[in-house]
């Protein structure tokens, strides 16, 4: 240990060096995963594993030809339409049920039971009924998303601190103001945790819907490639789908952090 080394190392401190270690560890792990992928491609053959570089090249070609945008757009369009419909219904219904305790109690078990229906299983029937357009996929997305939003909103409304509502009443707030300023604001954490589940699920549901019936979209691309035994295409499509969902996740998390800056834990995390 020379003196110079000590001078260089000392200001960094144990905290930073631990941070560096973690980053190094992550890089190492990422390389390990890529290597495992490449190794599998060599070991099991191109039919089962597409090598990473070939997948990358396919993605690049898709991006250049505009094919990628076309599929991503088709998937996002269906997801967005279904999501918005489910969001409106999932938010409005709990606020409406708030007006009648009796109605809430009466419908509660059915809402919980109907949650148990495997929504995707409705797809073949919906396809028979609505044909191969966007409609059956949108219905599936709506069903998948609605429950998440409905239940988080419902739980959020239940968890509102009664004392804050009383306080707002004393200060002269009417019911509309209370709904907007106290209930809506205090259920934000619930709303965002619902959103974090619901948005990726909307995209996931669209992709599964596209497996079953479609002529475009990321799910169609994957399934079509599988039917042609185009393994590189399957991998490229899956990488694309995963990337899409992760980007959406990132956006929701960013939104959440901004909207929930008033919460102690989120503050600490952003520092």
């Amino acid at each position: 240990m020379t003196a110079i080394q000590e001078v260089v190392v000392a200001p960094a401190g144990p905290f930073l060096s631990k941070r560096m270690l973690i980053i190094l560890g992550r890089c190492f792990f990422a390389v390990l995963l890529l290597w495992a992928w490449q190794w599998s491609a060599d070991e099991f053959g191109m039919i089962f594993f597409a090598p990473p570089l070939a997948v990358l090249q396919r993605l690049y070609e898709m991006a250049i030809s505009g094919e990628m945008l076309q599929h991503v757009w088709a998937t996002l369009r269906v997801s967005a339409i279904g999501f918005v419909i489910a969001l409106v219904a999932g938010l409005a219904l709990p606020f409406a049920l708030r007006l009648s305790h009796r109605l809430t109690e009466a419908v509660e078990p059915y809402v919980l039971w109907s949650q148990g229906i495997p929504k995707y299983a409705l797809a073949p029937w919906l396809i028979l009924w609505f044909g191969i357009g966007d409609t059956p996929k949108i219905v599936i997305v709506v069903l998948m998303v609605f429950y998440v939003i409905f239940i988080t909103t419902f739980a959020g409304i239940r968890a509102v601190d009664r004392r804050l509502i009383n306080m707002a009443r004393i200060l002269g707030a009417n019911e509309t103001v209370i709904s907007r300023e106290v209930i809506w604001k205090s259920m934000q954490p619930f709303f965002y945790s619902g959103l974090k589940v619901a948005l990726p699920r909307a995209v996931g549901a669209t992709i599964v819907g596209e497996f079953l019936v479609s002529t475009q979209g990321v799910g169609y691309y994957i399934e079509h490639a599988r039917e042609l035994s185009d393994t590189v295409g399957v991998f490229a499509g899956i990488v694309l789908a995963t990337g899409l969902v992760l980007v959406i996740n990132g956006i929701v998390e960013k939104m959440e952090r901004i909207a929930l800056a008033w919460r102690p834990q989120d503050r600490e995390m952003s520092h």
Binding site: D161, R163, I170, K185, S186, W262, R263
Partner: peptide
Amino acid sequence: IGYVTQDDNLLPW
């Protein structure tokens, strides 16, 4: 009638 309660009941957001 104003009311200052035992808990401050400030709106956290």
